[in-house]
Design a protein around this nucleic acid. Structure first.
Lengths: 347, 347
DNA sequence: GGGAAAAATGCAACCGGTTGCACAAACCGC
DNA sequence: GCGGTTTGTGCAACCGGTTGCATTTTTCCC
């Protein structure tokens, strides 16, 4: 025997039906349900009871029509095959829910956003939009700006009219370079993700710059297209090189590619990290698996999403706020896919 | 000293502003934009031009308020750490977009659905809802039924008042059993996912039944909690058994656990499939990776989502349609994680 | 007991569309 | 030149809430 189920909702209770039931006006009902202090406490309670009994559910659509907010946050996400984006989405869904907001998924995948998609953003009057993937077309961004729909890029550097939260990619690239240099690597390689993406540039530039300070240059520079398969192909290519020409370390610009690369070089018979050190970027959950043990630069995803929603909330409350960029420092997570710095030499 | 500045309400064009511009009534504008044949073609074109020029975007919220549909489909999804659900979401987003619908994510994760979440489903007046995860509370389901919000379960067997699309779990379990039997395995084990989930039951029952026909019983039955870690733990436990007591094959009820199990038994020094055959369920993309090469029962995910949206669309159009269950046959994808049937014996 | 301030509630407009029905003008045949 | 269709538009109500302001009721104090 379970607890008696609550009284089933009557079909579509509205403020109107409640006002009839309570014998008051709709405005009184509306205010009572919001705990407006102008309504007598007794009335407020009576209406609240009635509402519960009737299974009243406010119609958010109607509410947001009359000037209010929809509680809808748009999300433009990257390809879900990359666990980084899967995790980002989960994080965003849960954090948004905590704030009483819901996520409207506008896009999930690679490739440019269709016009229809970017317009949906306006059709549904989202309060704001989180962009974690492909640049919005400048047209869409312009429209958002004009309509006062705040845009926040996550894991992207700000472009156009928008705020942004991103990892400190320069510091990340530099940290990886320092780590590899300390490990005594002399022939570093780089595997790029998606070309033309703002986050990659910083990582690459800083990595190369730090190498240069140590008098080193890239031994190799490959494209991994931000996929497991691309990383695998890069790994196969590296493993195929004669030992003398082969890099002794690879910085792979994101973990999904790094995992592909690791699998490929091991399949080819190379030992990691003895023959080749591998460092990734993101720290997706799978990177911690024993079989990968990927040394990687962890992005503070939870915080990134949190700050992204914060920026959004602030701009929803006051659309006049200027654009703002937040940069969060990531942290190198050392596992066993890269040779560790030699204490003797480090000291 | 500074009074709160009135927010510059620069709203976009509306049917009202267009009607003023065009010198016609709002109803004419509304109809013209829908290509209502009752409006003179000349007027229609003129208004369409005006609308384009003004960057008019219909307010879906307002439209759906007055009886229309919102174009919103709710999604209750499982934990995104499981690539199956990540893929399901991507598939749903894209297919919904093709139909001009948008996905409202109501839930993504394990655990029961909070009441607030299930209520959001009604707040936002979604046209229908796809449920791929945890059972909705019966109360929520009842409310949906009463309000005429169609519910379709995907990868779940129909319960309560709802339609469903699922893989033929019985056939799947049987196919796996047949395959393992043909491979000459005599000590089959089973790793369960989440307890009490409808899909698992069928797989388990049919698997065991088919084994029984061959005079075999389960050598072992473990819980993997539908996570990589759970699968890993199960693998470690299996590998720790003395060779004589160890199963020679494991049917793992989903791929994410199977991957954890594979990694664990290999870490423990067992060879797959020589010492242990492993078969999964789902066929997530990672299962095809060389390093896993997981033999698994592929669920026709794309079709499942398609049929799910079909069922939903039909019920949105006609809420009186009876509940319907669609069962799709999965297909065993043979890779190298399980010993193959011996041709001599099979023939 | 009367009047003003305070408290409680109602009226009506508005958000941005949709739609049934009325109405006006142009067109028809006779 | 007159009634009867078509054809093209407008009026107004409605969807389900919110909110500024007016109105009614109560409270309070002298």
């Amino acid at each position: 025997m379970t607890a008696p189920p609550p009284i089933p909702a009557r079909r579509g209770a509205t403020v109107h039906s409640l006002s009839r039931l309570a014998g008051v006006s709709v405005s009184t009902v509306s205010r009572a349900l919001k705990d407006d202090p102008r309504i007598a406490p007794a009335t407020r309670r009576r209406i609240a009871d009635l509402a519960r009994e009737a299974g009243y559910m406010p119609n958010v659509l109607a509410r947001s029509l009359s000037g209010g907010q929809s509680g809808l946050i748009g999300l433009v996400n990257g390809p879900m095959q990359n666990p980084f984006y899967a995790e980002l989405l989960a994080e965003a869904v849960n954090q948004a829910a905590e704030r009483g907001q819901r996520l409207l998924i506008l896009h999930a995948g690679t490739g440019p956003i269709e016009d229809r998609t970017s317009e949906a953003l306006l059709h549904y009057r989202v309060d704001g939009c989180l962009v974690a993937s492909a640049e919005l077309s400048s047209r869409a961004a312009a429209i958002c700006a004009e309509r006062g729909v705040p845009l926040v890029m996550v894991n992207r550097v700000a472009r156009l009219h928008a705020s942004a939260v991103s990892c400190d990619n320069e510091a990340g690239g530099r940290d990886v370079a320092k780590f590899l240099l300390a490990g005594g690597h002399r022939r570093p390689a780089l595997v790029l993700g998606t070309v033309g993406v703002s986050t990659s540039d910083g990582r690459e530039r800083a990595f190369i710059a730090r190498l240069a300070e140590a008098g080193l240059r890239l031994a190799l520079r490959l494209h991994g297209h931000s996929t497991y398969e691309g990383g695998h192909a890069a790994g196969t290519a590296i493993a195929a090189l004669p030992a003398g020409e082969r890099p002794d370390a690879v910085f792979v610009l994101n973990d999904i590619m790094a995992m592909g690369l690791l699998d490929a070089v091991r399949e080819a018979g190379l030992r990691v990290p003895e023959d080749l050190s591998v460092v990734g970027f993101d720290d997706v959950p799978a990177a911690a698996r024993r079989c990968y043990g990927l040394t990687t630069l962890a992005q503070p995803l939870g915080t990134m999403v949190r700050r992204g929603l914060d920026l959004l909330a602030a701009r929803i409350a006051d659309p006049a706020l200027p654009d703002e960029s937040v940069t969060l420092r990531g942290q190198l997570v050392v596992r066993h896919s890269a040779r560790l710095p030699d204490p003797a030499r480090a000291g």
